[in-house]
């Protein structure tokens, strides 16, 4: 290489940009591959949902009418005639009882975790919560049986009843509400609470009138996901409530047991009767509809409440 060429190269160094043509081609292909695999992952992931809706509708469609959701089961085997009103009413009982326990408990501990607790205690409580979410629901059922249902030994002796099942479901729901409430509050900018404290608010005043209002949407989502989680639980009900083909006469003791959509599907599908199999599929459509309606309804309520709270 001559000295002249060498000098020229040094001069051009500032403007010189080595273009790798084959890499430019390849990077476009990589981009397409990434896009295609993401789309494929979504399709595979969403497939079961569409299959459930499709098959349930195909098999259960002829029972989907007003009568089905507004009458009690009758005939032989029980359920061959009539509808699933007992299960729908029972689900309302269970969700309301579970929420009575889990909403105050979950929101309370969520607020405590993110606002009042110390770092080390928090990490222990958080770990416990995650553990609780991981406990299989059948284990919760056994716990519920010993604490609430059984009539022997220590416990509340509620019998197989809505109260026993509702409280057990409440304990399943609590850690979900706790963790999601904590996350919702952590998303609120720290400047809100600082602003309130700097004006002389106590921590509780700041929490009550600034933080909870700002996090309201997130807290609603926390409760919603908790309810959606318990509405389909079957295993805990096996040990605490089982099933009632009629209307409950109370919430504890004999006659306190309620029907439940998930249990109904579980029981009907085990019966050697084609009609009951069809009805189980129809009931699963109703359950899916409730989940969907609950989701939309809660979002609507949360949207309206947030709007109202802004005015206060």
């Amino acid at each position: 290489m001559t000295e002249k060429e060498n000098n020229k190269k040094t001069e051009d160094a500032g403007n010189y940009f080595p273009v790798n043509k084959s890499y430019i081609k390849r990077k476009k292909i990589y981009n397409r591959i990434a896009y295609a695999s993401a789309a494929l992952a979504f399709i595979i992931g969403a497939f079961p949902v569409f299959h459930i809706i499709y098959s349930a509708l195909i098999i259960g469609y002829k029972y989907l009418n007003w009568n089905f959701v507004s009458t009690l089961p009758s005939g032989f085997p029980i359920g061959a005639k009539g509808g699933i009103l007992n299960a729908i009413i029972g689900d309302f009982y269970l969700v309301i009882i579970a929420s009575c326990l889990a909403v105050p408990l979950g929101i309370g501990s969520g607020l405590y975790l993110s606002l009042f607790g110390k770092k080390r205690t928090n990490s222990i409580i958080r770990l416990l919560n995650e553990l609780m979410i991981g406990i299989p629901s059948v284990v919760w059922g056994i716990m519920g049986f010993y604490i609430f249902s059984t009539n022997a030994g220590l416990g509340f002796h509620f019998g197989f009843s809505a109260l026993a099942a509702g409280l057990t479901l409440g304990f399943i729901m609590t850690p979900i509400v706790t963790l999601l409430t904590e996350q919702a509050v952590n998303r609120i900018p720290a400047s809100y609470i600082e602003g309130a404290l700097a004006m002389g608010a106590t921590k509780w005043q700041a929490t009550k009138s600034v933080i909870v209002k700002a996090a309201m949407g997130g807290i609603f989502t926390a409760v919603l996901l908790g309810v959606l989680n318990i509405i389909g639980q079957t295993a805990p009900l096996l040990f605490t409530n089982y099933y009632n083909t009629g209307m409950p006469t109370g919430i504890t003791g004999p006659g306190g047991a309620v029907g439940d959509l998930a249990m109904l599907i579980f029981i009907y599908i085990h019966e050697p009767s084609r009609i009951l199999h069809y009805k189980a599929e129809a009931a699963s459509v109703v359950l899916l509809f409730f989940v969907f309606a609950l989701d939309i309804g809660m979002r609507l309520i949360s949207w309206v409440t947030v709007k109202i709270f802004e005015m206060l």
Binding site: S191, Y192, E194, A198, M199, G200, V210, K213, A214, E310
Partner: peptide, 20 residues
Amino acid sequence: VELRRNVGMVFQNPNPFPKT
């Protein structure tokens, strides 16, 4: 509480509450 009533503070980021 009384101290903070007497000593007001304005922050770097405008941080109004999500209220009216």
